[in-house]
């Protein structure tokens, strides 16, 4: 079987539609991950030990199990208790939740990397808690987090093909369906690979720029 350019041009619109949905899912899931991750990071720092422990255990569990199974869980189990989510929403929530456990770690490390002296200085100059966070801690903690968070954004983008397993018509699923229709696998599968590779090579350059701009976070 040989590479057929005519076939490539024929399936290109379908694949591009899939790519659009892939990007949309990535962005939505990234927003969920960023917000939920912050919530997890705050709960993790909670004064109530039961809450802090519980959050840590939950994060550990989510990080130790496959995203695919979590997606199945959300898509197939939740309807049994009356929560029926559309595939796209289930995918966004599943991916967002999975990566929230990773972004929470980034937030935690970012905050802990602000030297203790900064907290003490803020207290010495009689800043309120709010002023301390808004004017001292956040401006120092956030810039080093940006490249790391961007890294997870790229990781999420690469994981979106998993959503095809719960019937979201993203890039991989579109490729699979055209491949099954015409029984030609070489072009669609290779193109999916090329799309992802191209996007990730571009994003590596983008990441270097972010790292140069904001610096790397010390581990």
């Amino acid at each position: 079987m040989e590479w057929d350019w005519a076939f490539v041009w024929q399936i290109m619109p379908t694949l591009l539609a899939g790519l659009k949905l892939t990007l949309l899912v990535t962005l939505l899931a990234a927003v969920v991950a960023a917000v939920l991750g912050l919530a997890l990071a705050i709960l993790r720092r909670s004064g109530n030990r039961a809450v802090a422990r519980g959050t840590a255990a939950l994060s550990e569990f989510i990080r130790g199990t496959p995203l695919l199974v979590q997606l199945y869980f959300i898509f197939y189990v939740l309807p049994d208790i009356g929560i029926r989510l559309p595939a796209l929403l289930a995918g966004v929530i599943g991916m967002g939740l999975h990566y929230a456990t990773y972004t929470a770690e980034v937030y935690r490390a970012g905050i802990e990397n602000v030297p203790r002296g900064q907290w003490e200085a803020a207290r010495a100059t009689n800043l309120t808690m709010r002023q301390t966070w808004v004017h001292v801690i956040v401006p120092q903690a956030v810039p080093p987090m940006i490249p790391v968070l961007a890294n997870y954004l790229i990781a999420m983008f690469k994981e979106t093909p998993l959503l095809s397993a719960i019937t979201v018509l993203e890039l991989m699923n579109q490729a699979k369906s055209v491949a099954n229709t015409y029984y030609r696998y070489i072009e669609p599968m290779t193109l999916v690979g090329v799309f992802f590779l191209a996007m990730s090579l571009v994003s590596v350059v983008f990441l270097r720029v972010l790292e140069a701009r904001f610096g790397r976070m010390a581990k």
Binding site: K158, E159, P161, M172, V192, G193, F196, S200, V204
Partner: peptide, 8 residues
């Protein structure tokens, strides 16, 4: 690293 395990 540029493509996911699924695609590969």
């Amino acid at each position: 690293r540029g493509t996911s395990i699924f695609v590969q």
